[in-house]
């Protein structure tokens, strides 16, 4: 399965994963959390990654930063090509773990924001100190200047009275303010790629709307690429330009956001769409459900991983052969035997 490597030919592509596999060796067996995924993303996109818990979306994010290593995971196979600020393309998957090169990427060229802003900050340092740590780690500037920069960043994410809040401890801020501070910290070194792992899941809707709005504005301002990981199809519809749908460590469908909602192809994508209660339109009394629940990543079903829950399951085909991503139109790819996927 050789795919063309786009990142070498197209300067707009800043990240390209090729057949990435991330595994966790446990006493109960090997957990194949990310099971061979390939995609690329450009500097002007907000890529939504959607899937249920256990689909590997968070592990995929941690693989890109190589923070799976301390979690006990291992990038077992594949490439993670990333275009650095100086234009050089590096394969993050092949860098030595905890090496100098990796550390120079994290926080400075690739940043991540997390779901729970309370646990992502240390409770014993002020948010100013924590933002300054990121800045002084990557830039040789005196701490006075770093503090000025931290205050500036807090102002950029619309925190009122940033010069006061810079000395606040995380517990003194509300959830929304903490998430803003987290974004300020992530953006303090002007990264090219921001990975947001469920950044608004813990927030109220009105605050979520503010944060999403802020992220869209910052994406334009900083000209960075955002990978937005979420389980909420609504959030994706509001802000993503492209969508990747994941299931059990594999990508089942990738398409521009309009296509995913108006013309979904994979049975899993369709079922997900039907199972969410909607705030708009008419209300049907019974929600469509997907039978069963997501199987454990320790024993991924043979063939198509979704086949035991699929409504359009074909005996002898789906449970035996693994479908590969098949291109339907320019940007729309799907891994399903209904569309003739596979060699």
């Amino acid at each position: 399965m050789t795919q063309p490597i786009r990142i070498h030919n197209d300067p707009g592509v800043i990240l390209e994963l090729l057949n990435l596999r991330t595994v966790f060796e446990t006493r109960g067996g090997t957990v194949r959390a990310v099971n061979g995924i390939s995609f690329y993303t450009r500097n002007d996109t907000v890529l939504g990654v959607v899937g249920e818990s256990g689909c590997g979306k968070t592990v995929m994010a941690h693989s890109i930063l190589r923070t799976v290593d301390p979690m006990g995971g291992k990038v077992a196979d594949g490439n993670i090509f990333f275009r650095r600020k100086n234009g050089e393309v590096v394969d993050i998957a092949s860098l030595p773990s905890e090496g100098r090169q990796l550390r120079s990427l994290r926080g400075s060229e690739i940043s991540m924001i997390f779901q729970e802003p309370m646990t992502a900050f240390s409770p014993v340092y002020t948010i100013g100190q924590q933002i300054m740590e990121v800045i002084t780690l990557h830039q040789k500037i005196p701490s006075r200047q770093a503090k000025a920069k931290a205050i500036e960043m807090l102002g950029r994410v619309s925190i009122p009275k940033p010069e006061v809040r810079v000395d606040a401890y995380p517990h003194q801020l509300s959830g929304g303010m903490r998430q803003r501070a987290m974004i300020a910290m992530a953006l303090s070194c002007q990264p090219k790629l921001l990975i947001a792992d469920e950044p608004t899941t813990a927030l109220d809707v009105t605050i979520q709307a503010q944060i999403l709005e802020l992220m869209v504005a910052l994406q334009r301002e900083f000209e960075m690429n955002i990978i937005m990981i979420t389980h909420d199809l609504g959030v994706i519809a509001e802000l993503a330009t492209d969508v990747v749908v994941m299931y059990l460590g594999s990508i089942v469908e990738k398409a521009p956001v309009g296509e995913v909602y108006s013309n979904p192809k994979h049975p899993y994508t369709k079922a997900l769409q039907e199972s969410i209660p909607r705030v708009e339109g008419s209300v049907s009394k019974k929600l469509a459900t997907i039978s069963g629940s997501v199987p454990s990543a320790k024993n991924i079903p043979p063939g198509c991983p979704f086949h035991p829950r699929c409504r359009e399951f074909m005996q002898g085909q789906c449970d035996v052969h693994v479908p590969t991503l098949e291109t339907l139109s320019a940007d729309h790819t799907v891994a399903c035997w209904l569309y003739g996927g596979g060699e």
Binding site: T206, A209, G234, A237, Y261, V279
Partner: peptide, 25 residues
């Protein structure tokens, strides 16, 4: 009204002008 407006609508063709609530609760 503002609460309803803040809910993400799962349909990209309905992306809308929100009523942005300033400030916090």
């Amino acid at each position: 009204e503002a609460l309803l407006s803040a809910v993400p609508v799962s349909n990209p063709s309905l992306r809308k002008e929100r009523i942005m609530l300033g400030g916090e609760v």
